[in-house]
Amino acid sequence: MSDIAVHDVPPAHDDTTAGHGADHGAGHGAHATATGLSNNKLAMWLFLGSECLLFGGLISTYMLYRGRHGRGPGPDQIFDIPLTSVSSFVLLMSSLTMVLAVNSAKREDYRNTNLWLVITALLGSLFVGGQVYEFTAFYHEGLGFTTSLFGSSFFTLTGFHGVHVTIGVIMLLSLALMLSRGRVTGDKAEVVEMIGLYWHFVDVVWVIIFTLVYLIPS
């Protein structure tokens, strides 16, 4: 991602970096940028800010339509809270293992980084597996994608989240593989941290979905 054009320009002191700018972000191996912050991390945070509006739109659509299930099953009849609680817990714990991966990478302990990345990916897959099971069960209980507004908006929202988790799992596994083959050049810790940011964001979205969709009675 970082075909940075300029490397030999020292950073300008700048008034936009909110004080302690330069001693953060530009860790070892990062580029000297005008703000002292890493291009990659800045880009990732911008992307996550943008994702807020994507999920905001999907969640609002669901909230608007959750009560409109016609003759099909509604949220109260169909949700399996114990199952979803377990998978929420799994995803939450995957955030912890992700943090441990990032910390290991910062210590340049890449064996442990890899270990934690793979465990995170496994927990993520477990979550996706739970979602697939849940979707199948709902379908057999009469809630399809086309059944009702509730069905369409529920599957769209949780499906989008599930796709995000799946992409995250692929990125985690690829990263672990590339790290073990020595194919990640540059600042390895920053790459792990960036994928970590994405992963935590996906987790945080689920924190909201779990409460708004599953737990709050409609």
């Binding site: 909110a18 953060h24 972000g25 945070w45 911008l46 800010g49 807020c52 912890l96 970590g196």
Partner: peptide
């Protein structure tokens, strides 16, 4: 977990605007 507390404020600004 996402280090916003420890990191540069510019990251927080970007995210909080969204």
């Amino acid at each position: 977990f996402m280090h916003l507390k420890f990191d540069n404020k510019l990251f927080s600004v970007m995210f909080y605007i969204g």
